[in-house]
């Protein structure tokens, strides 16, 4: 866009007035509340500066909740990446008919937004103790899936439910990257004597790598910040970090308000970092795909 022609000097002030509402809104409802939480993480109840709150994260229930949260986020991000990549690969390079492709994209848009409470209900209705599949497996196949160690309110159940929004999100963000893999690259590699696996190892995967890592980071953040699905699914049976924070905000269960700030701060740092990684890597992969 060309630079604006120089205007009369006094005009510049009124030009800035136009964006005041936006910045005021962002300040009051986004930046100040976040800053308050961040600062709270570093202050004592009496107002002094301290690092104790953060140290408190590394003990007892909070540490184990942090650990469960990390594990579930990494695990669902990993599985979501693989499964999403396979689905996206099938619709971009797998020779599926156009109609299937469009319906998968549309469905992914819906499913990636179908998180939270209703999703949990859908899984309870399907895989809960009286769920559709549980009953089917018991009556028709004679299998009690709960005897195999599976439990919807445990780690495995939560993983299964999270994948329901993780995979579609992966499909949505990785499809453009896969479309960017040009047929000519494959043909050039082939004419130079490369086999299919050699092409994937030497060209396709390295080209996709930034997009894949970036998508992983985004999926991680997506899972880490999710609360409603886990709460509706497990109640408080499985304690992950956001659930602890939720309980803390509601009733100060930790009996130390500033520990709440520290948890919130940790969450910002983790999701913020992974989003940063995502944005950096996306810039890099876009450079390649010119």
């Amino acid at each position: 866009m060309p630079p604006l022609p120089a205007k009369r000097p006094q005009a510049s002030f009124s030009v800035w007035l136009g964006v005041v509402p936006f910045f005021a809104f962002a300040m009051v409802f986004l930046i100040l509340p976040t800053l308050h939480v961040v600062l709270g993480a570093f202050t004592r109840p009496d107002g002094g500066v301290t690092g104790d709150n953060l140290a408190g994260l590394l003990a007892g229930t909070i540490l184990s909740a942090l650990w469960v949260s990390l594990r579930i986020s990494l695990w669902t991000a990993f599985l979501g990446c693989i499964a999403g990549l396979l689905v996206a690969g099938a619709i971009t390079h797998g020779g599926l008919p156009r109609g299937i492709r469009d319906s998968i994209t549309t469905f992914s848009g819906v499913a990636s937004n179908f998180a939270g409470v209703p999703l949990a209900f859908a899984f309870i209705a399907t895989l809960g103790r009286l769920g559709f599949i549980t009953v089917l497996a018991r009556d028709w196949l004679g299998i009690n899936i709960y005897a195999t160690g599976f439990n919807l309110t445990s780690f495995s159940g939560l993983t299964l439910a999270y994948l329901y929004f993780q995979i579609p999100l992966m499909v949505l963000i990785i499809t453009p990257a896969l479309e960017g893999l040009r047929t000519e690259w494959r043909e050039a590699a082939e004419s130079l004597g490369a086999s299919g696996p050699q092409y994937w190892r030497m060209v396709a995967l390295p080209v996709l790598w930034p997009s894949l890592l970036g998508a992983f980071a985004l999926l991680f953040a997506n899972a880490f910040g999710a609360v409603a699905t886990a709460m509706a699914l497990t109640g408080s049976a499985l304690s992950i970090l956001p659930i602890i924070l939720f309980a803390q905000i509601r009733g100060d269960v930790l009996q130390d308000p500033h520990l709440g700030y520290a948890i919130a701060f940790a969450m910002i740092v983790l999701t913020g970092l992974s989003n940063l990684i995502y944005i950096r890597l996306r810039v890099r992969s876009e450079r390649w795909q010119k």
Partner: peptide, 30 residues
Amino acid sequence: KIPRIRPLVEFITLLPLVIPPIVIAFGYIR
């Protein structure tokens, strides 16, 4: 009028994806 501040505006609008909703709610309450 002010395309040069677009990156800043864009950054701010992306923040809600970075800060978990529960943290924002926490900030509001306090």
